[in-house]
Design a protein around this nucleic acid. Structure first.
Lengths: 335, 335
DNA sequence: CTGAAAGCGCTAACAG
DNA sequence: CTGTTAGCGCTTTCAG
């Protein structure tokens, strides 16, 4: 446990009695072969001096690094936390690491994070849908940084997202099978400002199922703090919907909590279906029925997509992931 | 949105009709002054070429970087997610960024992450209590990387943690005031393997309060998955404790959920007090009474501690943060 | 106030 | 198989 001053590749070369190039060949397994005995001596010297290469110098020489910029709306949101872990795991397996860019729900930071990615010369970027996808796509494209968009589509980007159509059909189908006819939606209403809105999919699914589509049953909720208002709207909606599909579980947890405070029973008065099948959704007041999908698959596939782009693949790819319904206590027979 | 090849500081110099040194002076505001008109020309050129400095080259020259390694046991745990956000915010304000090292509950990864920090030449490390603190402290010390330990103490490290003694007294005092006399503890029992165990503090607090200390009321729980067993033990403990102090809210949420499934009422049969005052603890089946403290203060203070060390301060510092009790539905009058 | 030039640690020709 | 060497882009003396 002594503090020594860092050894450089030259120190190793001297100790091993070889040139600095050979050390390089050994460390990188190439590009030239090294005699077994020499290699051994070098390895010894490395151990003896506790030598490790300097990434900065390497990068300067043009060798690709190993870090991926990760732009996430809010890591405190359990959904993003889960997904971050999945991405991290997938990346690690391939020798990469995450530089964390947590917006903390403050979209204004986005630009400065992108600039950070650029100066740091990250090898790629994974980005969630944020306020200004267009700026993001432009910036990364013009900076020639490979990237993939998660849970969003954009004509200029590779992306990955769940099968929204199937998800909406699943949710609607489940509720219909339970005898519900008046089904509400709680989530971002305005599709232009919230491209991630699930409203269009839910609407279409309702139509296809032959169920009524009522504008007053589309309750706007764009942030967690909207929950009290949204819950009130939902509970007092004209025509009394008996079920609601909520944009995600994080929202749903808050909605349920607020409904109960307002005296509405879940699922007694209102059945609820969320999205994302959060770990946390099992331990809430009323465990949530939810649209689930494999988070680790998203992680794995997104990374592959990204690294493929990093290797110079120019084709844009759009991946769609299958979903499944996880039934728990928040949805029950109508009536 | 065109893909141009990166401009170097020399391109800027040429376009501005100055030497590369001057560009450097402008970009870094020093170390030499630059005439206003020259500076203006340089700035123009930078804009025109969309120039940005290369961090790798800079680091190679010995200029400090701006990234901090962050070793966290499991980012999916809402507590760590909250704290990560707090650290990130505090760091950003000071121009630093987090390189995420999420163990994902797999301690075996620790060493390789530490090595990563070293090759990447991070400017500091923030580390939570993990399996092998000693190795961690040795490694970072001998690599001359400044670091601070969070929620742990070690003779060779600067550290920050909450006032465990006050916390235990608060929890015990609250329950005692509600008329509870038989108080259990759920958490890691074995202090050697789990240095973060709160058991000793709870034990001492019970003694000081003149309440009984019963070995059978100390229920072992070291991971989330232990919850079912721990809940059963707690519900069937001899002498029927009427309240329990649980190691943290994440555990407490699971314990409450399991107790209810077992037919025990919370707080009817058992009052529960947790630690950490998670956001999530407000929306669980029974909102939790919990020991709270300022997560942003921890973030801020830890960073200051770290940067002070980075500046060559050699004094080890141990910070202790105040706590407060947040009373919610999970604790009620005994009886 | 501005410029020339050395060199950070490393890789990869190129030449033995 | 091994060695020599030219830079990667930047900061910073040292001279003007």
């Amino acid at each position: 446990m002594t503090i020594r001053t860092r050894a450089t590749r030259l120190d190793v070369a001297r100790l091993a009695g070889v040139s600095s190039a050979v050390v390089s060949y050994v460390v990188n397994n190439g590009p030239k072969p090294v005699a077994a005995t020499t290699r051994h001596r070098v390895l010894e010297a490395i151990r003896a001096l506790d030598y490790y290469p300097d990434e900065a110098a390497r990068r300067l020489r043009g060798v690709g690094g190993s870090t991926i910029g990760y732009l996430v709306p809010d890591i405190r949101n359990p959904f993003f936390a889960d997904m971050t872990a999945a991405f991290n795991r997938a990346l690690r397996l391939r020798g990469y690491h995450l530089l964390l860019a947590d917006l903390g729900d403050d979209d204004a930071q986005e630009r400065s994070y992108l600039e950070l990615f650029r100066t740091k010369r990250v090898d790629g970027v994974i980005a969630w849908q944020t306020a200004s996808v267009n700026d993001l796509v432009d910036f990364l494209t013009s900076s020639a940084i490979p990237f993939v968009l998660v849970a969003a589509r954009h004509p200029g980007a590779s992306s990955i997202m769940i099968d929204e159509e199937a998800a909406a059909n699943l949710a609607v189908g489940h509720l219909k099978a339970l005898g519900h006819r008046r089904i509400a939606y709680v989530g971002p209403r305005d599709v232009t400002h919230h491209p991630q809105s699930r409203r269009p999919f839910v609407e279409r699914a309702l139509r296809q199922a032959g169920l009524p589509v009522n504008g007053e049953w589309f309750v706007d909720m764009a942030a967690l703090d909207d929950a009290p208002t949204a819950a009130r709207r939902l509970a007092t909606a004209p025509g009394r919907p008996t079920a609601a599909i909520v944009h995600n579980d994080a929202f749903a947890i808050r909605i349920v909590s607020n409904l109960i405070e307002l005296g509405s029973a879940v699922p007694g008065d209102l059945s609820i279906v969320g999205y994302d099948d959060l770990e946390a959704s099992r331990y809430t007041r009323v465990p949530l029925t939810s649209i689930g999908y494999s988070k680790s698959d998203i992680g794995r596939l997104a990374i592959d997509l990204l690294l493929r782009r990093g290797e110079g693949a120019t084709t844009r790819e759009e991946l769609t992931l299958p979903v499944a319904l996880v039934v728990r206590a928040s949805s029950a027979r109508a009536g």
